[in-house]
Design a protein around this nucleic acid. Structure first.
Length: 288
DNA sequence: CTTGGGTCCTGTGCGC
DNA sequence: TGCGCACAGGACCCAA
């Protein structure tokens, strides 16, 4: 699920039941996800207060009163669900993703002060968690190499120009590189390139200048709109209580192979190609 | 140094 | 209905 807008949607959903609240109990139900769970996971989390729940790129960062920070990544299939014991907690949970994953993939559980139970479910186990001293956050390899937040001030055409200079890889791959800009994934790269009228195959070094001036605002827009829509939900179905994101209905190209271009029905259909083993969708007429 | 491919893992949907 | 294969929102690791 998770690119920046989905992770941000999850953060907003979790914040009301986690932020400012004590973790009354925590446990992991298996020793590892993509990486082993942190040593003494339960002991280090139980009893501490989540002072602040932050998002950086596709990471969630829970800053704890213990002086540690819990870093969480959803991988490809990770999701959080909230089990709420009462009406008030259910209301707070209204934003959260896709309840009802197979319980055998419930890998971590947090029982929160206030009564909510937060469950991390991840069938593919590409997700992971890490726990480290907050004041050593800058040393974390997960975070230290990340490029700027695409919705922050640091992400500008000038930044993109510098980051893409001399890059021989296709712009599609460069935008997926979290060191260049942090938070884009396969969907939003495809959508942003379509909006900007740039071919995903174009060499990254040909973007600086007018094209990056066009691309930057489109990246911001598509991400902002997706956050506004509650992110994208694919293949995940749940009670239609408004909890699921609906940005997928706004896709211009992603998953639309052979369908007509939304910009101009007279264009050839949307094409799917494979770049570095991943699907790219684009309109060859719009995108040059 | 950059770049591309393989890899981790389970689930789903499709064609036969 | 069953079976096998392709594919899935990420990103690390390593060879070239």
């Amino acid at each position: 699920m998770p690119e920046l807008p989905e992770v941000e949607t999850v953060r907003r959903g979790l914040a009301p039941v986690m932020e400012g609240r004590r973790i009354l109990g925590a446990r992991n139900n298996r020793p590892d996800l993509r990486f082993p769970f942190p040593e003494k996971f339960a002991e280090r989390l139980t009893g501490t207060v989540i002072d602040h729940l932050e998002r950086r790129a596709k990471y969630l960062l829970a800053h704890l009163s213990s002086g540690e920070t819990l870093l969480m990544h959803l991988g490809m299939s990770g999701r959080f669900t909230i089990e709420a014991p009462n009406e008030a907690a259910r209301d707070m949970a209204a934003f959260v993703y896709a309840p009802g994953g197979n319980p055998k993939h419930d890998h971590a559980v947090f029982d929160m002060e206030g009564g909510a139970r937060v469950i991390f479910n991840d069938p593919r186990r590409f997700g992971f968690m890490a726990l480290f001293a907050t004041n050593a956050m800058a040393d974390q390899s997960f975070l230290s190499g990340l490029g700027p937040e695409p919705l922050g001030n640091e992400f500008s055409p000038a930044h993109l120009d510098a980051a893409l200079a001399g890059k021989k890889s296709p712009i599609k791959m460069a935008l997926l590189d979290q060191r260049i800009v942090a938070g884009l994934g396969n969907i939003y790269v495809c959508e942003a390139l379509w909006r900007a009228g740039i071919s995903p195959r174009r060499m990254a070094s040909s973007i600086p200048g007018k094209r990056s001036a066009r691309l930057v605002p489109h990246i911001r827009d598509v991400l902002s709109e997706a956050i506004e829509a509650g992110g994208t939900t694919l293949r995940d179905f749940a009670a239609t209580d408004g909890a699921l994101g609906y940005f997928q209905h706004s896709f211009a190209v992603y998953g639309r192979e052979n369908e007509i271009c939304r910009a101009d029905a007279s264009h050839g259909p949307v094409q799917r190609i494979v770049q570095s083993g991943r699907s790219t969708f684009f309109c060859p007429s719009c995108q040059r």
